[in-house]
């Protein structure tokens, strides 16, 4: 049976949530995200003195009566953001462990739903090889979103992925207009840091979600094992390994994984990017309602 998290019940529970994006993003007109710039909403924000060229209709005459100076009343602005979700479609994510792939798709769909639910634009970038495909284009509104995710469930996880190449060569990345999410297991030799740096350079809010399975978190096999990397081309591939897995090696594995996650986290912190590492044995709702809230991307 195909693993899938995408159903009405799943999305209905997400309706109470909203993305909490940085306020210094500029975005596009017509959204619901409050930004630092002043706009035409009804929510008061600040006063400033009248300057030549300002619309005199916006002068607050009550203040003038009190201070005999002209002040303009400023209101907050609300913008539409563009949420770009880069989904790693390499074989390591979903070929060996379909549940892990479904988990990653579920996380991408959930973030996409939150975006369209808050009148943002969303686009799914499927990273395959060294390019990011955009099969659905920019999605606005729930109808187009649901049409897209029905296809998203059928995405094939194959080959390997160069995250940096995919992100940096992706057209229409935009600038200072929204959130970029990279969903992957980050078990790759490619320089994913370059991708984060690129997105940061583009002044986009960045979130990295690492999805790993319980077997990857704590391997249960031991003894003499020939480990075949699913992304390897053949048995002679350098990525394949022959190991005598002992308790000591298992401890080393756990330590290496721990250090790798720590490295991801510290790098993201240094770039003011969010980072989240989740295991697929944790319910996806807990990830959405718990971990993402902790990161601050959800409100």
């Amino acid at each position: 049976m195909k693993d899938s998290y995408l159903n009405d019940d799943f999305f209905s529970r997400l309706e109470t949530l909203a993305l909490n994006l940085r306020a210094n993003l500029s975005g596009f007109f017509g959204g619901k995200h409050l930004v630092k710039t002043y706009g035409q909403t009804v929510e008061f924000s600040d006063y400033r003195e009248y300057m030549l060229g300002d619309d005199i209709r916006r002068i607050d005459w009550n203040l003038f009566s009190r201070f005999e100076k002209y002040f303009l009343k400023l209101f907050t602005d609300e913008r539409q953001m563009h949420v770009q979700i880069f989904l790693d479609c390499s074989a390591s994510v979903g070929k060996v462990n379909p549940k892990k792939g479904a988990y990653a798709v579920g996380a991408a769909a959930a973030l996409g739903f939150l975006a369209v639910h808050n009148m943002d634009k969303v686009s799914f970038k499927l990273m395959k090889g060294n390019r990011a495909e955009d099969p659905f284009g920019v999605l606005v509104g729930k109808n187009s979103f649901f049409r897209a995710i029905s296809s998203l469930e059928d995405v094939a996880f194959e080959g390997d992925t160069d995250i940096a190449e995919c992100v940096t060569t992706c057209p229409n990345v935009g600038s200072n207009d929204g959130l970029s999410v990279i969903i992957s297991d980050f078990f790759t030799d490619s320089n994913w840091k370059k991708a984060v740096d690129y997105l940061t350079y583009k002044k986009r809010q960045v979130l990295l979600i690492q999805v790993i399975s319980p077997e990857e978190q704590e391997p249960l096999y031991n003894g003499r094992v020939s480990l075949i990397d699913i992304e390897s081309s053949d048995l002679a591939d350098a990525r394949n390994m022959k190991l005598r897995i002992t308790r000591g090696l298992q401890l080393a594995y756990e330590e290496a994984l721990r250090d790798m996650i720590s490295d991801l986290k510290s790098f993201c912190n240094s770039r003011e990017a969010g980072f989240l590492s989740v295991c697929t044995d944790k319910p996806i709702e807990k990830m959405l309602f718990g971990e993402l809230l902790k990161v601050g991307i959800m409100a």
């Binding site: 074989a91 390591s92 994510v93 070929k95 060996v96 462990n97 892990k100 297991d185 078990f187 790759t188 030799d189 399975s213 077997e215 990857e216 096999y221 003894g223 003499r224 094992v225 020939s226 480990l227 075949i228 990397d229 699913i230 992304e231 990525r239 394949n240 390994m241 022959k242 190991l243 000591g248 090696l249 080393a252 594995y253 330590e255 290496a256 994984l257 250090d259 790798m260």
Partner: peptide, 21 residues
Amino acid sequence: PNYQQRVISSTYVWKLSLKYK
């Protein structure tokens, strides 16, 4: 002895672990 073959998602972490080992 014969090695038991096991297909896994990635050997990336195992390679890292060898440094610790």
